[in-house]
Design a binder for these strands. Structure first.
Length: 480
RNA sequence: CGGGGCGUGGCGCAGCUCGGUAGCGCACCUGCUUUGGGAGCAGGGGGCCGCUGGUUCGAAUCCAGUCGCCCCGACCA
């Protein structure tokens, strides 16, 4: 089943596909561009979902579910929105054996149907704010697809909120960006840069789009999540108004924000190595796997029994543990398989360990092994898992720093991009023309205008491409 | 849509140039020996060769068409 994977250094894309398939995160489905998320990949998604959902609830949001099918006419109500999404819509034209009066669009996102409902639900300032999230699937007919990173159908969460004032909407937009960043860094051990999208890159229908940008293991950028301040665009398009305290009718202010199963691809590309996936302990479906080692039947009975006993203790301590007691694989084979799947900590229990009343542990992120006494095993395993979680984050931060470059002129820009890759902090004149020209010449895009830039990046300068005045530096990179 | 590649047991492939009734590795089943870094030997099961049509005594192989997938470019979370 797992017959070796392409090395990252040979071909990063193939490495990625090999790991996704062989670690059984996902598999191709019969329909082009769509995929099956297998139980191991879905287990990871469930853990992500739980971590995000908890944060949404803590910030006052509630979940609901809106339908998959949207009247085609809804998509046309907001001008930029139609333009942005029409090329990638899947449309149902026939149903029940007949042609439909009005075609139904399979949601690429739910703004339109949600705002159509909000019109009914919002009348008074007392109805605000509305803070609803939904977990759903969406369909976007992409030309080129890649497992988890860009598929025709994907799973995500989309928050849609309505507020009385522009200030509240902006605060919500920023708050959810912070929630995402916290989730990425705390749970995924993936450092992200919070930023604003340029007008060229912002969401179709948004006033302003914030994003979190992460660096993958090949130094390319990946947009990991977005939070949009939609202003009154959708409220006006769907005529959603409320009566303020002073009796005046006003349009509401909106936000929307989402993250997707792309997170799974991001996680793999941030932490993975030539041996496969590396799961951060907080999200790992299996945090520790126990492999019994034995020669004789008696040893087998004893070590397997001890493995289950230790597993029981760990489970009692809230650790997600799995005992690999399959007799048809040798230990070495099992090690390789669990490494491919990225289980952060492996425990081995053999005859020697039984004697010593200990287990042997091996970290996935480093070649570091050591014995742990069974006495106090919960605490020592928890401690090791936390160490791994921190180490993964620190390693990713270091990698990003090593691959972030400041450049001052165009030749330097091109040579750094070509020879080193990574994130480039450079001056930009703020125009879409320059942004597009740079993209056409180098394939690099402005990933974002960072929010938490240091003073050295906020000094004025000259645009790296046009030489025109620039207020500050932005991040350029090749992206997914 | 343009360029490239590929469809042959579950998976990965060979066979196709030069038609003759399908093979290899892994996986699977049985048995014995093994088991602290991807075990060994022996025996065994499984495939209308993507689909359709044509040429031929005979097609995985030649011809025409068709469908699908993957990779690279134009769109995007």
């Amino acid at each position: 089943m797992s017959q070796g994977i392409t090395k990252q250094s040979e071909d990063f894309s193939r490495w990625y596909t090999d790991v996704v398939l062989q670690a059984q995160l996902a598999d191709y489905s019969p329909v082009k561009g769509s995929m099956v998320i297998r139980p191991y990949g879905y287990g990871l998604w469930e853990n992500m979902r739980d971590g995000l959902d908890r944060r949404f609830k803590e910030t006052g949001h509630v979940n609901a579910y809106f339908p998959l099918l949207i009247p085609e006419s809804f998509m046309k109500k907001e001008a930029e929105h139609v333009e942005g999404f029409s090329p990638e819509l899947a449309v149902v034209t026939h149903a029940g054996g007949k042609k439909l009066e009005e075609p139904l669009v399979i949601r690429p996102t739910s703004e339109t149907i949600i705002w159509d409902m909000y019109r009914k639900w919002i009348q008074s300032h007392r109805d605000l704010p509305v803070l609803i999230n939904q977990w759903a699937n969406v369909v976007r007919w992409e030309m080129r697809t890649r497992l988890f990173l860009r598929t025709t159908e994907f799973l995500w969460q989309e928050g849609h909120t309505a507020h009385a004032t522009a200030e509240e909407a902006e605060a919500e937009t920023r708050q959810m960006l912070d929630v995402y960043a916290d989730f990425c860094e705390t749970e995924m051990a993936m450092p992200v840069i919070k930023g604003i999208k340029t007008d060229h890159e912002k969401f179709a229908g948004a006033v302003r789009t914030y994003c979190i940008e992460a660096m993958m293991g090949d130094t390319k950028g990946l947009q990991a999540g977005t939070s949009h301040n939609l202003g009154q665009n959708f409220a006006k398009a769907f005529d959603v108004t409320y009566q303020a305290e002073d009796g005046e009718r006003k349009h509401v202010y909106a936000t929307s924000w989402g993250v997707t199963t792309r997170f799974i691809g991001a996680l793999l590309m941030v932490h993975g190595d030539d041996d496969g996936m590396i799961m951060p302990p907080r999200l790992a479906p299996i945090q520790t796997v126990i492999v019994p080692i034995y020669k004789t039947d008696e040893e087998r009975t004893a070590t397997v029994e001890e493995a289950h006993r230790v597993a029981g203790i760990l489970k009692g301590g809230g650790i997600r543990v799995h005992v690999d007691d399959r007799d048809n694989f040798k230990p070495g084979w099992k090690y390789a398989e669990w490494e491919l799947k990225g289980v952060p900590l492996r425990l081995e229990i053999g005859p020697k360990d039984l004697e010593k009343r200990s287990v042997f542990s091996a970290r996935r992120d480093k070649r570091e092994k050591k014995g742990l006494p069974v006495e106090g095993i919960v605490a020592s395993v928890q401690e090791r898992l936390e160490t791994i979680q921190t180490a993964l984050f620190e390693r990713a931060v270091k990698f990003r720093e090593e691959n972030t470059h400041r450049v001052e002129n165009w030749n330097h820009f091109k040579s750094v991009l070509e020879k080193k890759g990574g994130f480039i902090l450079a001056h930009w004149d703020g125009t879409t023309e320059t942004e597009v020209a740079i993209q056409e010449e180098t394939k690099a895009t402005i990933r974002c205008i960072p929010l938490d830039a240091g003073p050295e990046d906020l000094e004025p300068g000259e645009c790296v491409f046009s030489g025109k005045p620039s207020k500050r530096r932005v991040i350029f990179a090749k992206g997914y």
